[in-house]
Every structure is written in structure tokens, then in C-alpha cells.
Simulated assay, not measured.
Amino acid sequence: MHPAFSVIFLTTLIGVGQGLFLALYTGQLYALANLLPAQSSNFYAVGSMVSLALLFAGLIASFFHLGHPERAWRAATQWRTSWLSREVLALPAAMGLIFLYGTVHFFDLTKPLFVISGTLPVDFSLIMGGLGTFAVFGLFLCTAMIYASLRFIKAWYSPLTVANFLFLGVASGFMLAAAFSAYQGTSLVGFYGTWAVIATLFGLLTRVATLYRNGQFRCKVDLKSAVGVHHSQLEQKAQGFMGGSFNTREFFHGRSQGLLNLIRYAFLLMVFVVPVILILLAYVLESETLPLLAFGIQYLGLILERYHFFTEAQHPQNLYYQSMA
């Protein structure tokens, strides 16, 4: 498939935003259980606004691959059958709940509403955070299933696609949380960095498994079965016309295998190896800049990873349209 950069930025930006919100809420829960030092409401408010800004940036990026952006609202009408429609509904729902979560902290409206078992104070931010968590996981599922539900794209039709979207989003979000904590001068860099490394390693396992799985595919159809001629030396010389078309532009990336291999090695290093090393060094050296560098490198690697994700998809129609005169 031809990678659309608007979709690449959509999926990576909202993934980071979702992961950052999960990191913030996880930190709040740990602090509530006295496993971490409590942070100021400003920490959660600013972090939520960063998460919301990333989600909004992803939403804006999505409009650039629409032929008629003014008709975008129609995408939500098929929610009963379309994962894309469900994503269109889940994204603003998650954004709304994250906005409420950040607003509650911004105005410091964290007075307990009630106490469970005499030990667990529940305030409005805890409720909004819980609802936001469900919305974020739902958004992860909807985004991934847009691709994982396509039976005719064998490279995507797998539960590994959902796992990759989830783990890479969580990893990048926690990595950003570590960088944000370092910037804010809090003591949560080690906590967020540790979970970022764990999520990154899980992402490495599922992504490598995906690469191995996709490398084993053997196409069940070929030129012989396409035209019904089973000659031993059948070879296509042209696709029937001299110019390009929608099919040649949108269903094939047009890149050499050598370049794709280079992109693969690059994203494996930038997403999974270098950030982990930098976070470990940041912990040892107590550096405030290395977490920022780790996130920056990992996000650039995620752009390459998502580009490679689209080029992995081999559309059956390319048996005909990929060969040009």
C-alpha cells in the first residue's frame, strides 16, 4: 500500500497522546496507593493539555487525506459495521474526557466525593480518569481494527496488529511522560521510564513476531490463476496503458526492497534499542535531557515504523497494476 503521511501522523500522534494520558492516570493511582509521591494538580493539568494537543494534532492531520473534508461528518454514520466510524466517535469521546480530567486538576477540584471502605477517597478526577481510560483503550482498538479487520490484506489481518498499536502507543506515551517529568523536575522519571522500557520491550516482541509472520507469506494467486493460462513461462510485460492511475498510486508504494530493508533496520533501532539505552543512561546519570532525547528519537522511529507498516501490505490487485510499461 502507498503510505499516506497524514495517516502516519494521525496514528502516531494520537498514540502518543493516548499513552501519555494513561501514564498520567497510572501515576495518580500509584500516588493514591502511596506507592509514589503525590504530584501537584498543575502536573496533571499541564500533562493532560499536552495529551489533548497531540490528539487534536492527529485529528487535524487526518483531514489532509480526505478528498472532501467538509463531508468528514459522514464517516460517523456507519458505526454499526465500520471500525473507521467507531474511531471517528471514540476519538472525540476520549478527547472530551481527557479535557474534563485536565480541567478538574487545573481548577483543583479534587475534594473527595466519597470514600470507599474508609480508605479510598474518590474525587471527580478519579472518575473522569477511569472513564477516559476506557475511552482510550477503545480508541486503540478501533484504530487498530481498521487494518486488522481487512481479510484480504494478510499482513494486517492478525491480532498482532492490535497489539502493536497498543504497545507502541503506550511505550511512546510513557516515554513522553518520563521526558515531561524530567522537564517538570519531578521524581517520577524513573517510574515512567521503567514502564516505558517494559512497554517498548513488549512492542519489540510483537513487532518482530509480525515481521517474521509477514515474511513467511506466499501469495496463493499469481498471473497464471489470474488469467487462467498455466504456461510455465507466463510473464507480464505491461498493464495495458502507459500512464499511472489511482490503482498505481494508492495500492503500491513504488519503493525498492533495499530501501524498505533500510527503513526496517532504522525503525527497529530508533523505536526499540536507542530509547531504552538512553533511558537507562538517564537513570544512571540522573540526566534531565536524555529522556527528552529518548522520546524524540523514538517518535521519529515510530514514523518510520508506521511507514513500513503500510508498505508491508500487499494488495492483490498489484499482481496486475504494479507492472507498468
Rank of each mutant, 00 (worst) to 15 (best):
A177Q: 01
V229G: 08
W83E: 03
P92K: 06
S85H: 06
C142R: 07
G203F: 12
G138F: 04
W73N: 10
N261D: 05
A325G: 05
L234H: 14
L204H: 03
L211R: 05
L290W: 06
Y30C: 05
L300M: 01
W73P: 02
Q322C: 08
S6Q: 10
T206Q: 13
T81D: 10
L292Y: 08
V7C: 03
A135K: 03
V122S: 06
G47P: 02
F124D: 10
I279T: 06
N42D: 07
K224W: 07
F56G: 12
A313K: 03
S85Y: 13
F295D: 02
V221S: 08
Y265W: 13
T12K: 09
L262Y: 10
A76S: 15
S85W: 11
A178M: 14
R213N: 14
G254M: 11
A31V: 04
G19Q: 00
F106K: 09
T12N: 14
G58F: 09
I60S: 01
V16P: 01
A33R: 14
L139W: 01
Y320M: 11
Q317D: 09
I303G: 06
F267T: 05
V197Q: 03
L29D: 03
F140M: 02
L285M: 10
A135W: 00
S62H: 12
A282H: 10
G169Y: 08
S40L: 00
A155P: 04
F252I: 02
F56V: 15
V274M: 12
F267R: 04
L176Y: 15
A61F: 13
G129T: 10
L302Y: 07
R306S: 00
S245V: 02
F64K: 09
G301K: 06
E87N: 14
L89I: 13
F251Y: 13
F246P: 04
A196T: 08
R249L: 15
N164A: 14
I8N: 02
T110R: 15
A177T: 03
G129E: 09
L20E: 04
M95P: 06
V162Y: 15
A144R: 01
G27Q: 08
L126K: 11
V16L: 08
Y307G: 00
H253F: 09
L188T: 04
E312D: 15
L24I: 01
I146G: 05
S187K: 04
T186C: 05
F106Q: 13
A171S: 07
A313M: 10
T143V: 12
T143E: 07
P37V: 01
N261C: 00
V273T: 12
T81A: 10
L278Q: 07
Q184P: 01
E288R: 05
V50K: 04
T103G: 08
Q236T: 14
V284A: 12
L54C: 03
F180P: 05
A182R: 07
L89M: 09
G190Y: 04
F64A: 15
F114A: 10
P69V: 11
T119V: 13
R264S: 14
G96D: 06
P121D: 15
G129S: 07
W156M: 13
L211A: 14
R71G: 02
Y157L: 09
V274D: 09
I8L: 08
I8Y: 05
S232C: 08
